[in-house]
Design a protein around this nucleic acid. Sequence first.
DNA 1: ACCGTGACCTACC
DNA 2: AGGTAGGCCACGG
Length: 115
Amino acid sequence: MTKTGKLPESNDEGDFFERVYDVVARIPEGRVTTYGAIARHLGTGGSARLVGWALNKTLAGDKSMLPCHRVVNRKGELTGSTWFGGDIMEQMLRSEGITFDELGRVDMSAHYWEP
DNA sequence: ACCGTGACCTACC
DNA sequence: AGGTAGGCCACGG
């Protein structure tokens, strides 16, 4: 292999981004997960930021079909709603059957999904 | 090539 | 109990 050496193995170890897409796309309806959980599952550990970044790229790419609205931070707050624009994210989550607390945060205790 | 930023999290004081 | 600081990886200028 003299080449770029990039082994595209479609095995489990793909690119970090694709891995994020895969996990996010596997999030069941009515369930939410956190960036840290995904990052940990991917093995990145403390690179939870990369997860959000990956989603950011996705949002700008063609993978906007990813249910990134089901991904919230550790506090259950819709941090990504800023990029979604207003309460769109909240509306989508409510449509999924997710409940919010008085603070407007997702009830992780009832919808927390772990990969 | 270097520095800064980012949809975060954990730990310590 | 709350607040502050640092860490992590990757991309953009």
